[in-house]
C-alpha cells in the first residue's frame, strides 16, 4: 500500500537516516579536506596575534561596512532578511525544536507559531526576490552556475513545503509534511557538496581572512 502516511513514515524513518548519514559523512569529509591541507609557515614578523583578529572577523563580517551597504543595499538587506527568517523558522519553530529534543535531548525556547509563520512568509518573498536579482543583476547573472539555481530551488522548496504544511494547503497532511521533510533531507544531502557548506566554512574562511589581516595589524 503506497499512501501518504507510508510516505511520511519513510521520510521520518529510513530516508531521514540516509540523509543525516550522508550529511555527516559529507560534512566531516569536507572539513577534513580543508583543514588537512594546512597552511605554509609564516616567517614574517607579525604585528598582532592571529586568533583575536580571526575570531573577531568571524563575527564582524556578518555586518556589511557602510560603503558596501550603500553600493549593494539589496544584497545586504534581502540577504539578511532571508537568512534570519530561515534561521528563525529552522531553530525557533516548536516542531523543529522537538526534533532536536527527540534526537539529541536538548531544547530551547520557541517563537509563537504566528511569528514563525510571518517570518516564513517574509523569507519566501525574499527568496523570490533573490532569484529575480540573480537573474537580472549583470554580475550575479554572469557568475551564477547551475549549482546556484539548484541550491536556490532546494532551499526555496524547504521553506515553501514547510509553509504549505503549516497552513495545510496540501492534502492529506502526511503528504504535505512528508514533502517538507523530504525537501529538508535533500538539502542535508546536498549541503556538504555544494555552496551550502558556507553555513560552516564561511566561519572558517572568515577566521583565515581575519587572521591574515590581523597579523598585519588590520582588523578585517
Amino acid at each position: 500500500m503506497s499512501g501518504s502516511m507510508e510516505f511520511l513514515l519513510w521520510t521520518k524513518g529510513p530516508m531521514f537516516d540516509i540523509a543525516m548519514v550522508i550529511f555527516a559523512i559529507g560534512l566531516l569529509a569536507r572539513l577534513a579536506e580543508i583543514f588537512l591541507l594546512g597552511r605554509a609557515r609564516n616567517y614574517a614578523e607579525p604585528r598582532a596575534g592571529e586568533w583575536p583578529a580571526g575570531l573577531r572577523t568571524m563575527l564582524t563580517r556578518t555586518v556589511a561596512d557602510r560603503g558596501t551597504f550603500e553600493r549593494a543595499p539589496f544584497n545586504v538587506v534581502v540577504g539578511w532578511i532571508w537568512h534570519l527568517g530561515f534561521l528563525a523558522a529552522l531553530l525557533l519553530f516548536v516542531p523543529h525544536i522537538e526534533l532536536a529534543k527527540g534526537l539529541f535531548g536538548i531544547s530551547w525556547p520557541a517563537l509563537p507559531n504566528p511569528v514563525v509563520d510571518f517570518l516564513t512568509a517574509i523569507t519566501l518573498l525574499s527568496l523570490v526576490a533573490t532569484l529575480v536579482h540573480r537573474l537580472n543583476h549583470p554580475v550575479k547573472r554572469r557568475i551564477s552556475t547551475i549549482e546556484d539555481y539548484l541550491v536556490w530551488t532546494v532551499v526555496f522548496m524547504v521553506v515553501l513545503t514547510g509553509y504549505l504544511a503549516y497552513h495545510r494547503m496540501v492534502n492529506p497532511y502526511p503528504l504535505a509534511l512528508g514533502m517538507h521533510i523530504l525537501s529538508a533531507e535533500i538539502l542535508l544531502i546536498l549541503l556538504p557538496f555544494t555552496k551550502l557548506t558556507h553555513i560552516l566554512t564561511a566561519f572558517i574562511a572568515r577566521w583565515y581572512n581575519g587572521a591574515a589581516f590581523g597579523r598585519k595589524g588590520v582588523q578585517s
Binding site: L9, K12, G13, P14, F16, D17, M20, V21, I22, F23, A24, I25, L27, L28, P95, H96, E98, L99, K101, G102, L103, F104, L177
Partner: peptide
C-alpha cells in the same frame, strides 16, 4: 512529537561523522 524522527540515533550520526 510528530516531528521526531523514527529511527535515527545520535550514535549513528557520530559513526557517520
Amino acid at each position: 512529537p510528530l516531528s521526531v524522527p523514527l529511527t535515527l540515533r545520535p550514535e549513528t550520526l557520530l559513526q557517520a561523522g
